[in-house]
Amino acid sequence: MQADVDQDGRTLTAPIIRTTKRRFLVAAAAGAVLAAILMDYEVPGIPLPEPSTVEAPPPQAASCDTLIEPMSERQRVAQLVMVGVPGDVEAATKLVTDNQVGGIFVHSNPIQLLVEDRLAKVKAAAQLPLTVSIDEEGGRVQTVDPLAGSIPSAREMAATMSPEKVKAKAVDRGKFLSRMGVNMNLAPITDVSSQPDNTVIGDRSFSSDPATVKRYAAAFAAGLSETGVYPVIKHFPGHGNTTGDSHKTTVVTAPLAQLTTLDLVPYQRLTDYGKAGVMLGHLVVPDLTGNEPATVSPAAYKLLREQFGFDGLAMTDDLGAMRAISDRYDLPEAVLRAITAGADMALWSSGGRVAEVLNRLEQAARSGELPAQRLHDALRHVLVSKGLC
């Protein structure tokens, strides 16, 4: 592999790639052992890779600064984006090869992309281990049901199953995702809602009672984590009692004091969810974010970090396909505003305009418009979520 050089001729890529590749190989060996343990989970008709029988020692986490220091500005900002990929494996591989993004989002034609270990080719194109995410809540929001069967909605699970059974259901789905190559699930929902099933949240919520939401969401997250799939709870600061759909229009929540007594209750003691990320929704909280959606509001990230003590991965809801944000900002500007405000990873499902977005972020990093400390903090959270430091 030819090393990248910066404008002063310094080698940038080789040190970090050599170091990270070694860790990645060890992690891959450990993943093969996990696959061997999970061989009792079978998916009829879908060929699975043979597990290794050689057990490797766990990878040693490096200092985040050691990994970050030799990276170019382009490499750094690229790790902060998660891009939707098409079902075609060649197109997905090209997107990763050309842009070296930190993560991809699988949502289109999973039958083509997930079977026969095809994701392995996409992952191999990444110089740093790639986060592969999916939207697998259950009910009307699930992606792999054509391959693995359907799971109930959150509301149905809470009504008919114990938390222990919900955890087992999440373990079952997590095993499948892990063996297909997916390592992040944008679930469970922690929204509190009593609204009808077919509203924007509705039956995606476990309950109208925040304590019940917390109990069941924590069980679902624990089941995913047990299989090596990183859960992401959503949608901070709370979408369950709003009117309107942020896919279609601006959505305004109740005042912050009211959110604190209901919608924000599941975010108390975030360590109860284990190692998990938090997704912010495109939600306007008038006495917190002013007229801005939470995804681009420094006040919303400050609330999450300071009042709720969260030091994990904070990511955005879809910045490209939801009109609550896309009607306000062009995609490159929305991504920059979100990361500058406090997001660690910016998501857009369309997959287009990747180079344009990275150009804008790189320009902002070089000029100081994206402050160096904010970039460093975001990158640290991303690398920690990948288990690299």
Rank of each mutant, 00 (worst) to 15 (best):
L347P: 04
E362A: 11
R76D: 04
G102D: 13
T199V: 11
I189R: 07
T53H: 14
T19E: 13
S150W: 06
K302S: 14
A148R: 04
G290L: 00
L38R: 08
Q142Y: 05
D377F: 01
G45Q: 03
F310T: 02
L288M: 12
A299K: 12
V171W: 03
V122T: 02
P163C: 06
L304I: 03
D209T: 08
V357H: 01
A126W: 07
L34W: 07
R337Y: 01
D272P: 02
P86E: 12
V384W: 02
A170W: 06
L361A: 03
V144K: 05
D263N: 06
E69K: 14
Q127V: 15
D197A: 15
T271K: 13
M279V: 03
L177S: 02
L113T: 05
F220K: 07
A218Y: 02
E164G: 12
N291S: 13
E73Q: 13
A61W: 12
G244P: 13
Q112G: 10
R360V: 02
M322D: 10
P293M: 00
L388S: 09
A56T: 08
K248D: 10
A170F: 05
F220H: 09
K248L: 15
F236R: 06
S297N: 01
E137D: 11
A334D: 02
D377G: 01
P231H: 07
V81I: 14
R74W: 12
K121D: 14
L379C: 04
S150Y: 09
G281R: 01
T199W: 05
T93G: 14
R328F: 02
Y329Q: 07
F24I: 05
L313N: 09
T53A: 15
V77N: 06
D8V: 11
R215M: 13
A314K: 03
G84E: 06
A321I: 04
L256Q: 06
L80K: 04
D330L: 10
I201D: 10
A294N: 00
H239S: 00
L283Y: 00
G87R: 04
I325F: 04
A355P: 01
T19S: 12
C64H: 11
L283Q: 00
V232H: 08
L283W: 00
M345I: 06
G277A: 03
Q75I: 07
V285A: 06
P47S: 13
D317E: 05
S349N: 08
V285N: 05
A78W: 03
A126I: 10
Q2E: 14
T93C: 14
S205C: 05
T253I: 02
H376F: 05
T97A: 15
V26H: 03
V5A: 10
L48W: 11
T253S: 15
L128C: 12
G320Y: 02
D377Q: 13
A187K: 07
V83E: 10
V354L: 07
A62L: 15
A222C: 07
L388V: 10
D330Q: 12
V182R: 09
V89Q: 11
K121S: 15
A14N: 09
V251H: 03
S385P: 00
P86W: 08
M82C: 14
A14G: 12
I201L: 09
K234E: 11
R173N: 11
V43F: 07
R204K: 07
